[in-house]
Design a protein around this nucleic acid. Sequence first.
DNA 1: GTCTATACTGCGATAGAC
DNA 2: GTCTATCGCAGTATAGAC
Lengths: 190, 190
Amino acid sequence: MTAAGTDERRTDTRQQIRAVALELFAEQGYEKTSLREIAERLGVTKAAVYYHYRTKEEILSSLLDEHLAGLDALVEWAEAQPPGRERRRAILQRYSEQLAAMADDGSQLIRFMQENQTSMKELGAAAGMRLRFERLGAMLVDPDASAADQLRGRLSLMALHFGTFARDVPGDPGERRTAALEVALELGGR
Amino acid sequence: MTAAGTDERRTDTRQQIRAVALELFAEQGYEKTSLREIAERLGVTKAAVYYHYRTKEEILSSLLDEHLAGLDALVEWAEAQPPGRERRRAILQRYSEQLAAMADDGSQLIRFMQENQTSMKELGAAAGMRLRFERLGAMLVDPDASAADQLRGRLSLMALHFGTFARDVPGDPGERRTAALEVALELGGR
DNA sequence: GTCTATACTGCGATAGAC
DNA sequence: GTCTATCGCAGTATAGAC
């Protein structure tokens, strides 16, 4: 009973590569993390990693795909709503919940994207992710609004992201998330 | 009449390296920019670049140093003021002016720092820059304030930075700067 | 003082043996 | 499924031409 196309594996090396890679990418960045480093942590060689993923970029790509579906669902739902203040409010609200629902490695990934924007920009693997964020961002700012309001719209997304991975802001994660949503709503929900 | 310690040069290769490097770093990131790429644009070899700067990091370091003095002056002035809402307001006001006064490559550098946080983090060359931003950030948030207020304080700095290099926000640079200051003040000046 | 030639190590990536 | 061997390019480094 082999599941065609999906993951039917005897080893969990694939999964281990993903876990180690996410940790190292978030810690020291995409470019500074070498395949040898990932391989050595798992006790295999570089070429063994290459068996499971054809390129380094594909490892990152698979990490992003894990969260792309959720983001995509949000974007599509949002684009079906009538534009306006209420939609902006709802987007921020839902996205905040979605961020909260992501596992621990979800916030690692958000932080990685925030701190490696250049890598993400020319990586292609991240093109889908960036596209969704652009569509989300476009709905958070009225194109006819003032420059200040456009800035507020952009910052509202950043506020939510910051709330998920900021380590030097006091309070438990839930508290930070509530605070982030509060700030995001006052930036984007006027 | 040799100026001891300062730049007494017959060629401007050093300056050209800095200009090309800043452009490439901002465009494609620090790690993806190779010394050979910089050298070829100037019609010299990698080793020639290596003569003027002992490491790749030193090139970035020299670019950061250009703007470190101005930031340092702001931080020291600010730390001599009595803490409180008025100081936060004054810091944002002055920093906004300082950003506006920076040349075109100043905003390239700000954008670079924003988009290459991971490189900056482990680079050491940027340690001085990060230290100043931390001290500046510390004065923009009351440690006893709520989590929401701490977030607002952080975002106030980001608003100013965003206003200097955002290309998809409408209006001329002056207009964007005014808008950024307005948003920053409402975030950090309550 | 400014640069070229050359070489070293480690990187991402590929080919082919087991 | 994992390995060894190898490739070209990266940053770094030194020797020496001019």
